[in-house]
C-alpha cells in the first residue's frame, strides 16, 4: 500500500513546478499551461484523499475543478487572441498597456 503522504508530496512538487513555470516563462501560453499544471496537481491530492478517507466527495470536487479549468482555459485563450489582435506578441514583458 502506497502511503498517502507520497501522493501529497507528488502533488506539492508538481504544484511548485507549475508556480516556477508561471513565474519564469515569458510566453503567455506557457503561463496558462502552468496554471493547468497547478490545477492538475490539486486534483491528484483530492483524489488521493478521497481514496484514503473512503469518501466520494473528493472525486466530486475534482469533477467541478475540471469544469472550472475548462472554462478558465477558454476565457484565457480568448483574452489572448483579443490581445494578440491589438499587439502581436504573447510575451508578458511587452504586454504592459496598464503600465503595471
Amino acid at each position: 500500500m502506497v502511503p498517502l503522504s507520497w501522493y501529497i508530496v507528488l502533488s506539492a512538487v508538481v504544484f511548485s513546478i507549475g508556480v516556477i513555470g508561471f513565474l519564469t516563462r515569458r510566453n503567455l501560453i506557457i503561463a496558462f499551461i502552468s496554471i493547468e499544471l497547478m490545477l492538475n496537481s490539486v486534483n491528484i491530492s483530492l483524489v488521493a484523499f478521497s481514496h484514503y478517507l473512503q469518501s466520494i466527495k473528493g472525486q466530486i470536487m475534482v469533477f467541478l475543478v475540471i469544469a472550472v479549468a475548462a472554462a478558465e482555459a477558454v476565457v484565457g485563450l480568448a483574452i489572448l487572441i483579443a490581445l494578440f489582435r491589438n499587439k502581436p506578441t504573447v510575451n508578458v514583458d511587452e504586454i504592459n498597456l496598464l503600465k503595471g
Binding site: L4, S5, I8, V9, A12, V13, F15, S16, I17, V19, I20, L23, T24, R25, R26, N27, F49, Y52, L53, V92, D93
Partner: peptide
C-alpha cells in the same frame, strides 16, 4: 530567450515553496 529577466528569483521562490511543502506535507497524519 524563453525565461524572463528575473527568472532566478522565480526559481528560488519556487524552490523555497517546494522545500516547505515537502517538509510539512510528508509528515501529515490523517
Amino acid at each position: 530567450k524563453r525565461f524572463q529577466k528575473q527568472w532566478p528569483l522565480g526559481v528560488f521562490a519556487g524552490m523555497v515553496f517546494i522545500v516547505f511543502l515537502v517538509l510539512i506535507l510528508s509528515q501529515i497524519v490523517v
